[in-house]
Design a protein around this nucleic acid. Structure first.
Lengths: 186, 186
DNA sequence: AGACCGTGTTCGTCAAGTCGAACGGAACGG
DNA sequence: CCGTTCCGTTCGACTTGACGAACACGGTCT
């Protein structure tokens, strides 16, 4: 977050942006938020400095978290862009680990913890088009991937594969544990 | 973030909390923020509804992100133990696993695989405001979480905690392997 | 034309937030 | 004991944000 920037202009921009994104008029938003439309007009014009109560009710009416209205649309501070390829080591913030996959703002990533046992071959139908699955093996061994070309993974191994085609999970050892991140497009 | 709660009392509490945490007096904070100490006194007393400018300058003077003053204190660490499967099992697409965390279209989630060894206590500075870290232990044992209240995790355990405060990773066993999902806000 | 909707703007008025000063307490030292 | 220096609170005066009405503009239907 910006430490110095006066949020006056930011708020004005954010309000207009979020409102148009929601596709409602200034009048309508003012009505929903329970504030005078004149007030809202001045705020969007930048001649503001609203009270917290006022801004809060606007946030509620817009259905956006409060902070989205006061913080600038995060400037990309992340420096790891270039090497988005798997297996790149990140030096960011004295943290060293293997960057397996860089997420996108457009996607939704849900985190699952899955226990598998041998014999239970799981065939999954195609999910939403554009969805991607990421699997990291914690314990045991699994055979997974698209039905056409499965791969075998051991602890610590990582695999990403399209989720919009038929794919499978199969444990090769008892008590196999995997972390599965499901990525859905917007 | 709370969708309904009027942040009046929250702000009062947050101000006092952060100020005492910084170890400065009300008078001193008012001076640094460039506001009248009477104003600050009233705010901490709960009889407030400050303008954004006022609250912002307080945030700057305190050296805390703005959102920390309006949002209820981050619910510390959320831990899901290996055995104790919590509520949500996903039925989606004939896939049954434990849904640890649901992603948002607003956030970006990067996936890391991290190997740790004992002795290497890693202290991470605060990242982008609003960032959240998700950790699942694959092998070994780790102590992690906010620096103020770390938790100990065993294989299969899951923990989510704010990444915008100082936090730590410490392996308690050799050859510890964890999956780390870093979530950045928009 | 006219009479409606809707949009977002600019006014004057009133309430409320902010300010500075004065206040009561507590701790310290001459 | 009294002066000093902090602490945080309460008071009145001033500034300012929020309100509602009136305003100008742009469609659309009669």
């Amino acid at each position: 977050m910006d430490r110095t920037a006066p949020p006056l202009a930011t708020i004005a921009a954010a309000l207009r942006r979020e409102r148009e994104k929601a596709g409602i008029s200034l009048t309508e938003l003012a009505r929903r938020a329970g504030i005078a439309k004149s007030t809202l007009s001045q705020l969007e014009a930048g001649s503001g400095n609203p009270s917290v109560e006022t801004l809060w009710s606007l946030g509620v009416a817009l259905g956006v978290p409060f902070s989205r209205l006061v913080e600038p649309p995060t400037p990309a501070v992340r420096v790891i862009r270039a090497g988005a390829a798997p297996g790149i080591r990140s030096e960011q913030a004295d943290f060293t680990g293997i960057l397996l996959s860089v997420g996108s703002r457009r996607a939704r990533r849900d985190i699952y913890l899955v226990e598998l046992d041998p014999g239970a071959l799981r065939k999954a139908e195609a999910h939403t088009p554009g969805s991607v699955e990421h699997m990291i093996v914690a314990r045991g061994r699994v055979r997974t991937g698209p039905a056409t070309e499965p791969v075998e993974l051991r602890p610590g191994d990582y695999a990403a594969f399209p989720g919009d085609v038929e794919h499978l999970y199969e444990a090769l050892e008892p008590d196999t544990l995997v972390v599965l991140v499901m990525e859905h497009p917007d």
